[in-house]
Amino acid sequence: MRVSRLDAQSDSFEELAMPLFDQLYNFARWLTQNREEAEDLVQETYAKALKGFSSFQLGTNFRAWMYRILRNTFLTSRTGLRVTNTVSLDSEEDGPDLAVGGATPETLLIDRSSQELVRRAIDELPVHFREILLLCDVEEMSYQEIAETLSIPIGTVMSRLSRARKGLRGRLQKQLQAG
């Protein structure tokens, strides 16, 4: 009897978790910036989530829970430790202030060939800025979900998001001026 209930539980985990597979992989790849590490990270996330699924409270946010496991796993990985040890949150620069007038980064974005520039700018952002932009603009999470995923208060979500966007604009502006 226990075995059949265990199977039932695994099935519902699979139903909830597999639809997130592509987006979790995308997020993992942005964090690790490496294909093999991203695969390991996703695999470990699913293993941990399956193991902890019995303690997961139905009715709470499953997506935020999965992302949180993935991110915490990343933070304790070799790459994660290196990235977070070398860049502390306090020392993250916001990027240069924008010059008033002239072309803005947004006018540049109208050109679809500029996607590569945006990608590079996101890639260059400190990991704490990169992840919050992805969660907000790519995953379209609410501030509440982001707060749960990153284990930070909503006020911090807002201020970090604003700094992340400023940092990204600053980087795009620099590319615009250089190109």
């Binding site: 597979f21 592509d22 992989y25 995308n26 790849r29 942005w30 294909r35 991203a38 695969e39 996703v42 980064p105 947004e106 974005l109 109208i110 500029s114 996607q115 945006v118 990608r119 996101i122 932009l133 992805l134 603009d137 790519v138 379209e140 966007r165 990204l168 604009r169």
Partner: peptide
Amino acid sequence: QMKRAIQIAGKRFAPSAEFR
């Protein structure tokens, strides 16, 4: 425009068929 650009650029990586 910025949000849209991040969204397009951010959807960048897909898992390989083998990994899936």
